[in-house]
Design a protein around this nucleic acid. Structure first.
Lengths: 353, 353
DNA sequence: CTGAAAGCGCTTACAG
DNA sequence: CTGAAAGCGCTTACAG
């Protein structure tokens, strides 16, 4: 029994023919390309078919149930045990909703504090999982050991330097470039990138920060990278406090681009505590797009990571790997675009002035 | 009429049930997950279904014919007018074979020497193409203009810094890291990366070259980047000739990693002309994996780019975008893994010694 | 492009 | 898990 169907009635080509006002056979011909149909009718039929969800249903039917159980391995430190780690929480929620929607059972791994390939493989076997989603980790040894097992493995929100498994991640480099370019377009020249020594995905955001300067042929020294001790708001505060003390002020910087909303929230607090007006004295932009940023004062301009789409791609790539793609098909890396959410802390966009 | 079907007879679940030795209904239950089936039987059925090509057929059927005509835009300079530009030639061949296989008409753009968005859009409209594949180009203005049109656009073998369209490319950064790491693992420490000031995809290979050093905590200054005037073999020869003259020899370098097979072929010629033995005095590794590398003396160790898989992904992503994914779904960037082909010029692998 | 009709391939419910 | 059987949804060939 499938639990969750968005619509009670099943949609068939009959519904499409009625809705689009064409013959049943015409719908079939459009969908299969079995007869030459005018561009106009064809467009109308496809539009209706998509709108009614028929295309999605048909594609879903095409992808056979190669994945019935998904085994989920998350490094314990990233489990959403505190309410600050909202990215993890939102991403894992999206993933389990996607599985529920597709009727896939999802089983969480529980093992040693440090993830361990043998444990994960044994755990997945024990529940007859065909696929494993590894989240946030990018220990090459672990990845290679998992890849060697007879399982489909996908790394979500991480980077596999050895490309031994498929990967799904936000376009970190692009997203950081997007935010930096947006600030540059508003006339900011000295931008401080506040980040931490995190995993390589976080380092890609540093790359993107530099890309934006390079693209405008601006000396990369105009921008500076400031490392906080970690991604907690307090660590952002600490880092900025030290920075302001050392430089005796903002040292000409007019914007702070933070590698995570968490850091941006800390930055907002610290800069305001020091008497700076945001965005007037200094603009602040975050990265992630999780809920709290909408509630800060001022509200946080940030780069939104498409968490729902990431979850959907993760399941999709696992099913593909298990069905059509064999083990010999090269590993793939999928990056999804991010979007700039303009709120108050970044100032008013040059384009909307 | 569809032209090309790999097998004459259509494969159905009846064939699978016979081949796997199970009941017809069992096959159906396995494929749809409509009844609990033992892991063993389930595995056997799926294995047979994949082997007979049923899974692929079913998935193909699921993906409705949203793409009937593909419009292909290639910057004229990249058209395979000379026999050296084999990467272009092989990639475009793979793309048209993939289209033929799927019954998609492919129409090549012919316009101004410089690609121009208005012309491409008009050309695509004129032949009623639903999708456009833009190859090798990454002019942001052009990409943005194309993205604004009512067409599905995919950039093949390029990088879109603005992520306004979907992208399919080899994992350049990873591939370069792979080759460099392979050389480091053999004990090479001073590696020369021979490249040219090409598009950003070529620059990613430089990034990967540095990644390999960083990963081993080796100073990046051990490796050096040498820019040739272009990617022709003669330009590689020229660059190496100048290098050897300036440094009065190989200056301690024991390996050359070239950003393209074309350059590697030039490097082989020049280094041998100067009396160096390959791989004994200096190892040479290429990138691309096109045919001529197998025929050089010594044969070329190189990184193979999965051109067939790139072509298949290109068509796949266009169909996805046109059917299930809407215009609001974030743009995606797909990178496919590359593989090191060990031949003679790189020396014997440490692992196989 | 329509519309009625034949037919195919798969799904599904059920007794064993 | 099997096997026979009913039935559903889509495809396809054809006259208009």
């Amino acid at each position: 029994m499938t639990l969750d169907r968005r619509s009670e009635r099943k949609i068939g080509i009959k519904d499409i023919s009625r809705e689009a006002g064409v013959a049943l056979s015409t719908v079939s011909h459009v969908l299969n390309g079995t007869a030459p149909i005018s561009q106009e009718v064809r467009g109308r039929v496809l539009e209706v078919a998509r709108r009614l969800g028929y295309l999605a249903k048909r594609q879903q039917k095409g992808a056979i149930a190669s994945l019935t159980t998904l085994y989920l391995a998350v490094p314990p430190g990233n489990l959403p045990h505190n309410d600050i780690n909202l990215v993890s929480w939102t991403l894992l929620t999206a993933l389990s909703r996607e599985c529920e929607r597709r009727g896939i059972r999802i089983v969480a791994h529980a093992g040693s504090p440090e993830l361990n390939a043998a444990e994960i493989i044994a755990g997945a076997r024990a529940v007859s999982a065909e696929g494993v989603a590894l989240v946030f980790d990018d220990n090459p040894k672990l990845l290679r050991a998992l890849a060697a097992a007879d399982l489909a493995v996908v790394l979500l929100n991480g980077e596999d330097p050895t490309m031994s498994v498929d990967t799904v991640a936000p376009a970190n480099r692009y997203g950081a470039r997007l935010a930096t370019e947006w600030l540059l377009a508003q006339g900011h020249r000295r931008i401080l990138h506040l980040t931490w020594q995190g995993r390589s995905t976080i380092m890609r955001r540093v790359d993107g920060f530099h890309d934006a300067y390079a693209e405008r042929d601006l000396p990369r020294e105009l921008g500076e990278v400031l490392y906080a001790g970690g991604y907690e708001p307090d660590q952002a505060r600490q880092a900025l406090r030290n920075f302001v003390t050392e430089r005796g002020g903002l040292d000409g910087f007019t914007a702070v681009f933070c590698a995570a909303d968490n850091l941006a929230i800390g930055a907002l607090m610290e800069l305001q505590a020091q008497g700076f007006a945001i965005p007037k004295d200094i603009a602040v932009v975050g990265f992630d797009g999780v809920a709290p940023g909408a509630l800060t004062v001022p509200s946080l301009t940030t780069v939104r990571v498409p968490l729902d789409a990431l979850a959907a791609s993760t399941v999709q790539i696992l099913e593909n790997r298990l069905s059509v793609l064999g083990t010999d098909h090269p590993a793939c890396r999928i990056e999804l675009g991010c979007q700039l959410i303009e709120r108050e802390s970044g100032g008013i966009s040059a384009s909307s002035r």
